[in-house]
């Protein structure tokens, strides 16, 4: 049966070609020289703002740490998701266990491209899908601030992920689908400055969309339901809709939103809960202008109904 031999031959060639293409398409890509040139010298005082906007300590501080101990970025939190358990690493200044030996370009490649100094992909549980929208100079400022934080020894345990998510190289394909430095919500010329500033904080360093936007089967955020709320990636429950759509926060004024970010209290005096508690405590460290900008942006974005299924009311 010579035709069968031929078919097998063609299939083999296609398979090898496909694998080669997949290998090429999934290659980690670092920043180009032009972007690296925009890093600049970095300023620790400005970097402190980026540190809190980015919420680094929410994942990288030791779980349960309070007060100044939250600046010891030793890692170790366990994020139990449907893909497996992600463990944020030590990003303290320890040169061996942390990132003390990293250059500013290393940090920029990690945050803007999701690529490690050794050229491996990071998992997007590290929210570089949002950080990719950050200005390189802000990353340089953050680098300068991180340098002022303590070195803490101790390696966090490795991730433990299910197949096929444990194949790091595959993330390269994910990046081709989802990684972009472009804004999510286009804003016309003449948009008020606070809305623009809020867009940067929310879509970039604040990475709000990582939890507040539903994801598709491959773990990419659904931009058509931006910030509409989502089933929580870990722990059960939901993350609220923060658009003005039905079920969202349309009845909150901009100052209600800013006040919530400052104090943790909703307009009807419920309080922030879950992962938002740490986020809110970080937001409280920002300036009133930054919080007002975030509020202005949230009031300006397209409204969506809840991005998670309605709760089944108990008959009990």
């Amino acid at each position: 049966m010579p035709w069968l031999k031929k078919l097998v031959g063609v299939a083999l060639i296609l398979g090898v070609a496909g694998a080669a293409a997949g290998w090429l398409l999934s290659a980690p890509v670092k920043l180009d020289a032009a972007t690296l040139a925009q890093l600049g010298p970095g300023d620790a005082a400005r970097g402190k703002r980026i540190f809190y906007a980015g919420g680094c300590s929410s994942c990288h501080a030791k779980p349960g740490a309070q007060g100044d101990a939250r600046l010891q970025l030793v890692g170790g939190l366990e994020l139990k998701t449907p893909f497996g358990t992600f463990v944020p690493p030590n990003i303290s200044q320890d040169p061996k266990d942390g990132i003390g030996a990293w250059s500013v370009a290393d940090l920029a490649n990690a945050m803007l491209k999701g690529v490690s100094p050794t050229g491996e992909h990071f998992y997007p549980a590290f929210p570089y899908g949002s950080y990719a929208r950050m200005k390189p100079s802000d990353v340089a400022d953050l680098y300068a601030f991180l340098k002022t934080l303590p070195a803490v020894s101790g390696k966090a345990p490795d991730n433990s992920l299910a197949f096929p998510f444990n194949i790091r190289r595959g993330i390269g394909l994910w990046k081709r689908l989802y990684l972009s430095d472009q804004p999510v919500i286009p804003l016309p010329d003449g948009t008020p400055e606070p809305v623009m500033a809020g867009r940067y904080l929310v879509e970039g360093p604040g990475h709000c969309g990582e939890c507040h936007t539903p994801r598709d089967f491959a773990g990419g955020t659904r931009k058509g339901q931006w910030l509409a709320g989502a089933v929580a990636a870990e722990g059960g429950g939901v993350v609220p809709n923060i658009t003005s759509g039905e079920g969202g926060i349309g009845n909150w004024s901009a100052s209600d939103i800013a006040n919530y970010l400052e104090t943790g209290f909703t307009p009807d005096f419920d309080s922030a809960g879950g992962a938002m508690v740490d986020v809110q405590r970080n937001m409280a460290e920002l300036t009133a202008d930054d919080r007002a900008a975030i509020a202005a942006y949230l009031k300006a974005i397209p409204p969506h109904p809840n991005g998670y299924p309605a709760r089944k009311k108990s008959t009990k």
Binding site: G237, V238, V239, G274, A275, D278, A310
Partner: peptide, 8 residues
């Protein structure tokens, strides 16, 4: 933070 789960 730890003892409540937000539901829809």
């Amino acid at each position: 933070q730890g003892y409540r789960i937000k539901k829809g």
